[in-house]
Amino acid sequence: MVVKSVIIRPELCVGCMQCMIRCAEAHSESGVLALAVSEAVLAKPRIHIGVGPELRPFPNKCRHCEPAPCQEACMPGAIRSDIAEGLKIVDMARCIGCGMCGMVCPYFAIRYYPAAQVAGHGAVAIKCDGCHERVARGQVPACVEACVTGALAFEDVNRHMNAGVNRLANAALGVTA
């Protein structure tokens, strides 16, 4: 089975942050930007734009590692593999907000905020859930849909690599594609 994932090409990113705003929208209660910005507990983005040399933008999100250091560090077992295939998803009801997952995440992909889904809890771990509900509905992840430059793509990683080999071959052999 081909599993698609979000593939990032930082060289195409212009730092517009549309992925962040649409990610938060997609994870809000209403799912509609105009309403989402006035919800009692604001949704938060799960993709972030870092800043590199010469202010070059760097989109960054959870890689859904296997094995996942965050999952191994999570004592209440809140980071689950059994919700959607290939994804590490935070079960907010189990999360105690201890911060261990963030400490061990090699990609700094986790943030801590109160969430509308567990009203009354303190801050819980907020990270990419692969937009598994959108994908199940036949949509692409919200960040990918928002990206106008192609810096984020939703595709089979092996096909992406194959296409990359062709680009490399063209460059190496001096042929313009």
Partner: peptide, 26 residues
Amino acid sequence: CGFCELGLSCRNCAMGPCRIDPFGHG
């Protein structure tokens, strides 16, 4: 653009352009 839809982007000067995060993270 989600920021522009909400009126949250500003290009009035060259210290920016700036955007305000409506979700309170940024």
